[in-house]
Amino acid sequence: MAMAFDHAGDGAPRPISSEVVIRMDGVQKWYDSFQVLKNINLEVHKGERIVICGPSGSGKSTLIRCINQLEKHQQGTITVNGITLDSQHRHLDQVRREVGMVFQQFNLFPHLTVLQNCMLAPMKVRGTTKAEAEAIAMKYLQRVRIPDQAHKHPGQLSGGQQQRVAIARSLCMNPKVMLFDEPTSALDPEMVKEVLDTMIGLAEDGMTMLCVTHEMGFAKSVADRVIFMDRGEIVEEASPAEFFTNPKSERTRNFLGQILSH
């Protein structure tokens, strides 16, 4: 499980911008009578990289899916880039334009080529011309080192390649924040590294990132902050150094014991 990355980040904490990109205040969510998010308070600063971990069913995916409202919260406020998510469609559209998301199952559009996957949102949401969209798409496909596959369909690519295309597709919208929902969990082990390397590259370029992941090596080397969730609440929030060497709560220790021992 443990993956070593020779990477800066283990040492002194990086200076973090004071600009808040995401703010969650007292966010609560229920599925019928079952509460999945309990009083979530979270601030994400510009350029910050946050890893969210926790046992399955702890609400970590639900939390990041509330940020772009793939899941609706019932109480509390979520503000992204200065826009508070309310019932207004306009606000939701504005937020979704600035927030990219990468899914566990990639969710590429199978009927479109890799290039068309990347061009769709810039053209239909931002209204860029076809030529511009193609230039943007090729730029980011190069960035994820996959420009030679541009004219293939997603089904012809390996899982790792598909996930890199998914990252490129999100980047084409030039988002302020990237959300990763277990981006390596559906991958064969030999493909995990190429996706993590792409994410590390993004982090180095200063992208604000929230990653739900079980890759503790990634958390150690890249995260500014690790958040541990259990049963719908944030149990612990600490720097990776603190989190892995000196976890405060019993629940965190149990979780780390399980995840790092196999």
């Binding site: 772009n68 469609h89 979704r96 899914f103 949102a121 239909k124 949401v125 597709r169």
Partner: peptide, 16 residues
């Protein structure tokens, strides 16, 4: 469902 979610997350509204 993932197709709806990916398209929504990219900012596409219902018609698109």
């Amino acid at each position: 469902r993932g197709q709806w979610e990916a398209a929504s997350a990219l900012g596409l509204r219902f018609p698109g």
